[in-house]
Every structure is written in C-alpha cells, then in structure tokens.
Design a protein around this nucleic acid. Structure first.
Lengths: 191, 191
DNA sequence: TTGTGAAATCCTAACGGTTAGGGCTACCTT
DNA sequence: AAGGTAGCCCTAACCGTTAGGATTTCACAA
C-alpha cells in the first residue's frame, strides 16, 4: 500500500498516454477497422503485449477517459449540495457530459464510434457498468429511501438519457426532455 | 421471389437447429469459454463456415430466439386491442417475456450468460437493437402523438425493465415496479 | 428426364485480437 | 550497494472470423 514516488509512475503514465494518442490519431486518420493493434504498437514504439498491459482491449483505446466518466457521475450524486434534489443534480451532470461529448472537437471521434459496430457495442456495455456504479451510489444515499429496483432503474434511465442525447439532433433539448420523464418516474417511487 | 417448396428449406432449418442444439448442450456441459467453434462444428458434423452461414457469431448461438423476441415486443404495440393503453400492453408483454426467461428450465442458461462477459455484452447490445425496433413501432403508432425522443426513451426504459427483472430476486415484482415508473414517465410526455 | 442455375455446404488458409511463457532492465526500497 | 519487482520486450500460439473457390444438392423448366 506504499505510494511509489515518481519516475516509474510517470514513465508508465507517459507510455499509456503515448499509446492512446498514437492509437486515436491512427484511427482517425485511416479508420478504426483499418488499423491493427500490431500497427498501433509499432507506431507507438512499444510491444503488443505492452498495449494490452495498459488497455484491456482495442476498443478501450478509444474510451481512454472511461474512468473519469464514472467518477463524475457518481460524484454528482454523492457530492451534491445537501439541499439539492437528486434528479436536478443528475440532470445537471448528464447535461455537462453530453455537452462534452458533442463539443466541436469531438465530432470526428463520434463519427468513428458510430461507424464501428464494435465500438458502439463497447460503449453500450460501458454504459452498463456506469449504471451499476450509479445505482450503487443511489442505494447508498441515506437521504433517498427508495427500493433497490427504483435505484437501478433510475440509474439506467439516466444512462439512457446520455446515450440518446449524444446521438440526437438537438442534444440539449433531448437531455431536458428525457429528464422530465425521469423526474416523473422518480417521483412515482416516493415512499 | 419464389417460395422454394420444401426439402431444401427443411434441410437448412434442420442444420441450423442441429448446430444450435449441439452448441447449447456443449456450452452447458463444459462452459461457454471452454468450447470452441471448431469443436461445435465437429460435434454437429458440419464445417466451421457452415456455422457462420447460420449464425453471425459465437454468441448468437446462445440467443437463437433473438428474432422472436423483437417481433413479440413490436407486435405487443402494433397489434394491441384498439382501446388498450400503450403502457399496459407493453407491461403485459414484458412480464410474459420475463416469465419466459426466468422459467424453471432457463436457469442454467441464465447462469451461463451471467458467467460470461462476452455473452452479457452481446445480450445488452441485442437489447439495444430491440429498443430501436420498439421505438420505431411507437413512433409509427397514429394514436400516440409523442416526440421521437419520448418514443426512444420509453423504448429503452422498457428494455431496461426486462434486463433488470431477468436478474432480480423477484422478477415479477421488479417488472411491476419499473413499469409504474415508466407509466409516470410516459404520462409526463402527454402533449 | 435431364439440363441448368442457384443455394447450401465444404475445405483450406489466412487475418487480427488476445494471451501465455519467459527473460531483461530500470527503478524503488532498505 | 543489493535485492526485489514493476514495466517492458519477444515469440509463439489460441481462437473467432472471413475470403476464396470447389462441390454437392435441390428446384424448376425445357
């Protein structure tokens, strides 16, 4: 449990970042399917096994920030101001996440994801994991005495809102509309 | 566009069924990951390429009835009695589907699915496809003048209900509870 | 009946993601 | 300064999947 202090950690992080950057730029340049793992490794000047030491799969190279996403989502619940209603906090955070993923610079990445079934599928299954984490956060909140089922359903609904909005013509409006539905669903579970 | 009359169709269906049956029984016997496609093919006495002529992937061998599922779901909407409210019809159908998948004999299959990340992921992405089909059916219903977003969200919520219920301790109660939420969400979108 | 086209199947070889095995080097700790 | 180990490397392989092209089997019409 000791925190190793320095160079090794930095080098590891640098290697990871270099792999992710190299991969993304190759993917964007020539297409996700057209670039192989062996090629990514060669271009990043590491061994294939090193790539898989840092990323669990080829798809994971594209969703480097996965971890952040989940943390932001759960923190939006656990760390919200004492008086703020749950759904409002969730709504705000999901809106921010959607803005992030529909921002100017993200368009080519989004196009790439939509263009590859493997990536779409992977993104969905990430959403699943995030929904589970969120459901756990909801269930742990002492201010919300709701059933496990209500927590799980609400968590999935929130992820649905995100997924729908990222692909919608008007992402902002979509988030708002779906959250009006979620609000009603949540109210319906009040004890 | 001619309907070929008989033997060829029957033989093809028989081959398909034999492959699916062989695969499922091998998977249940020795574990999904421990059985390779080459082995399934050998045991079913067909070529590997024939397996893939009938099933798009190894996972698809397990979800043979995929097509039925989607049809039942959309038909529950498009074919409901003229007076029956949408959510009630959906609720009824999802409850039936859940009962089907939590029935006595399905337990080993469920266990196998839950035990393999690849299968869980595949099932989720099937759900996605079904949600899209369902959303299209909702959008096409002339009696429900709701926004595209409302239709898409409701479709995903319904699939969520199914997914949650299949894994819940009390599947029936879970379906009912989540559908109370969906009902409220749907009402909130009334024009 | 037989010839013809097409569908279903087969075989082989390969491709691409992924992992096991085992070894080397550089860093951290003591 | 020495030992231990984390991070990295190489090679060879496994497994799902597909391309290519040959072969069989059936449906249908001449």
């Amino acid at each position: 449990m000791i925190e190793p202090s320095g160079r090794r950690e930095r080098k590891k992080a640098a290697t990871r970042q270099k792999i992710a950057d190299t991969a993304l730029s190759l993917f964007l340049e020539r297409g996700y399917d057209a670039v192989g793992i062996r090629e990514v490794a060669a271009e990043a000047d590491v061994a294939v096994t090193t790539v898989f030491a840092h990323f669990a799969s080829k798809e994971a190279l594209v969703f480097e920030r996965d971890q952040d996403f989940e943390e932001r989502l759960t923190r939006a619940v656990t760390g919200r101001p004492a008086h703020e209603p749950l759904i409002a906090a969730l709504h705000r955070e999901v809106r921010a996440l959607v803005r992030h993923c529909t921002a100017e610079g993200s368009a080519p990445v989004r196009r790439m994801i939509e263009g590859s079934p493997a990536l779409r599928e992977y993104e969905e299954s990430m959403g699943l994991r995030h929904a589970q984490a969120l459901a756990a956060a909801l269930a742990a909140d002492p201010h919300l005495s709701r059933s496990t089922t209500a927590c799980r359903a609400t968590a999935r609904f929130a992820i649905d809102a995100y997924a729908l909005a990222c692909r919608a013509d008007d992402p902002g409006a979509t988030v708002d509309e779906v959250f009006r539905m979620i609000e009603a669903a949540w109210e319906a579970t009040a004890p």
